[in-house]
């Protein structure tokens, strides 16, 4: 059975008849399970082009479905529903509603690049996963996922000062995702360090907060990058046929 036909055998698409006689033959019971008749009419014929227009998705059209990406995938090994090959197939067919069913896991790609290493067609599946996650958020199919919140907090710091300070990234991420900083593991991590070397740690923490690391002479680069980011965002929205602000 081809991978995209997975949807056919979902429990809600299967029918069993308690009493069914066809041409005089009794076919009642679960041994004679039928697949519901269906006709797909809601193809999004632009789906591949839309995801291909976003950063990382450019080579999706090259896929020939060998499955090397899924076979190599780190996340697939711990969650079999995480299946890059399947999603690429759905996107290329335009089966948007099927793709959207997995909206809450696609963002979990850890960027280990095992798929991109294995891919014989230079599809860059890692980039396709990021473009797809981005597409789901831009189209309003899902709220901003933690990874995008992290990417944005991180990138804003880089664009602003040229450098990041990892403590600040951590604090901003927890703040933006509404999580307390007093995670038990984090407390253990930090107190362990303070116990062994209090003066150094406190000094560094204090200094980094007051004097954020920054790249000298960064202001022109900052302006150039911010201008470019706006351009990219406008182009992305145009490719996805979204208006200048908000959802479709």
């Amino acid at each position: 059975m081809p991978i995209h036909e997975k949807s056919l055998i979902r429990p809600e698409n299967l029918v069993e008849h308690d009493e069914l006689v066809i041409d005089g033959v009794d076919v009642s019971g679960h041994w004679s399970t039928f697949i519901e008749t269906r006709a797909i009419s809601d193809y999004n014929e632009d789906l591949q082009d839309e995801i291909g227009a976003l950063g990382g998705g450019e080579n999706i059209h090259r896929c020939w479905q060998c499955g090397s990406c899924t076979n190599a995938c780190t996340v697939n090994a711990i969650n079999p529903d995480f299946n890059p090959r399947y999603w690429i197939y759905l996107i290329r067919l335009g089966m948007e509603s099927e793709l959207v069913r997995d909206k809450d896991i696609i963002w979990q790609c850890v960027s280990c690049n095992k798929c991109t290493y294995a891919c014989p067609r230079d599809v860059n599946p890692e980039g396709v996963m990021k473009a797809t996650a981005h597409w789901l958020e831009m189209k309003g199919h899902t709220e901003k996922k933690p990874s995008m919140i992290f990417d944005e907090a991180f990138s804003e710091q880089v664009f602003d000062t040229g450098k990041i300070e990892d403590g600040l990234v951590l604090r901003q991420f927890f703040q933006r995702t509404g999580q307390p900083l007093t995670q038990p593991w984090l407390v253990t991590l930090v107190t362990g360090l303070i116990k062994r070397f209090p003066v150094f740690y406190l000094m560094r923490l204090g200094l980094a907060t007051v004097f954020r690391p920054r790249t000298k002479g960064w202001s022109r680069a900052k302006a150039a990058i911010n201008e470019y980011v706006e351009e990219v965002e406008a182009a992305n929205r145009k490719a996805l046929k979204l208006d200048a602000k908000g959802a479709e």
Binding site: G55, F150, D151, E152, V229
Partner: peptide, 11 residues
């Protein structure tokens, strides 16, 4: 300057 790590590429 920062290399962008694993994050800026997603922007």
């Amino acid at each position: 300057n920062c290399c962008g790590a694993m994050e800026v590429k997603n922007i």
